[in-house]
Amino acid sequence: MEWNDRLAAARKAAGLSQEQLGERLDVTRQAVSKWESGQATPDVLTAARLCEVLHISADYLLLGKNEASSGPEAYTPPDTCPCCGREVPGSICPACGYPKPEQPPRGPQYAILVSNLSWSGSQLAEEDLVRYCGFSKADAAAFVQQMKEDNYGTRLLLRRGLTDTAAQWIASHIRRQLFSIRIVEDCGESEDTLRTKASAMELPASPPKSGIGFWGVVGAVIVALLILSLF
């Protein structure tokens, strides 16, 4: 396999199009296409940046050395869940349900901010923090109490250093009727700075909850009684 073939394979393994890779390197899609077809070669600084973006070694990209251990296919998934931090013995976290990543993290990191906790939702909020964010019961109770003491207006940092998919997973599963959620880009700033940042992505759709809930049951009973009254 030639270096340009290794480049194309590494790009595809990272889930990037030629245009997306070019954007991260500040070059055109045409430049990436010429590299992968062998019509041109990147300069030294760009080659180093390529290795950083694609999570491969320069020896692998340029010389094909240690291909078995340096290529993107050698990525070893983490032993702990990126969302809740618990050990993941299989392919899916047994606690929060997040799938173990099969590719190395790429792109920017994100943080989740929450505010405006519902007065009646303290217990459910604590359950979500324990399940999806890896809080202990004591830490979840303290976090919820802090939200109450902050008069429901201050944004508190829930989690940071997340990949885009991990941030979306947490945001889609903690109950939005309990929390007001914002996802911001995490560039290593202080917590105070993170709280002032604008949203970096739209919130994902929440998965449907199982069951019809208390008011659904009440409505079903009322409908049943009305039907019976007609006979």
Rank of each mutant, 00 (worst) to 15 (best):
M1C: 07
D5W: 01
D5M: 10
R6C: 10
A9R: 13
R11W: 06
A13M: 08
G15R: 04
L16A: 08
L16P: 08
S17M: 13
Q20P: 06
L21T: 05
L21S: 13
G22I: 05
G22L: 06
V27D: 06
T28A: 06
T28Q: 02
V32H: 08
V32E: 06
K34N: 11
S37D: 05
G38V: 10
Q39A: 15
Q39M: 10
Q39L: 12
T41R: 12
V44L: 10
V44D: 08
L45K: 14
L45I: 12
A47R: 13
C51T: 11
V53S: 01
L54T: 11
H55K: 15
S57E: 11
L62D: 00
L62C: 11
G64Y: 05
G64P: 09
K65A: 13
N66E: 12
E67R: 11
S70L: 00
P72I: 09
T76Y: 01
T76K: 12
P77C: 08
D79K: 11
C81Q: 04
C81M: 06
C81S: 10
P82T: 02
R86A: 13
V88E: 04
S91C: 01
P94A: 03
P94Q: 05
A95G: 02
C96S: 05
C96A: 08
C96N: 08
K100D: 01
P101E: 09
Q103W: 04
P104N: 02
P105V: 03
G107P: 03
P108N: 13
A111S: 09
I112H: 08
L113N: 03
V114N: 05
N116R: 14
S118V: 00
S118L: 04
W119P: 06
S122W: 02
S122I: 09
E127G: 02
C133V: 13
S136F: 04
S136E: 05
K137T: 12
K137W: 06
K137Q: 14
A140W: 08
A141Q: 13
A141P: 00
A142I: 03
F143W: 07
V144G: 02
V144W: 02
Q146F: 03
M147F: 14
K148Y: 03
D150S: 11
N151I: 01
N151M: 11
T154K: 15
R155V: 00
L158K: 09
R159T: 10
R159H: 09
R159Q: 13
D164K: 15
A166S: 15
A167N: 04
Q168W: 02
A171M: 03
S172L: 04
S172P: 09
S172W: 03
R175P: 01
L178G: 01
I183S: 04
E185M: 12
D186M: 10
C187E: 11
C187L: 14
E189T: 05
S190F: 00
L194M: 10
K197V: 07
A198H: 14
S199E: 15
A200H: 08
M201I: 15
L203A: 13
S206R: 05
P208I: 02
I212N: 08
G213A: 04
W215M: 15
G216A: 09
V217K: 10
V218Y: 04
V221H: 09
V223N: 05
L225N: 01
L230R: 15
F231V: 09
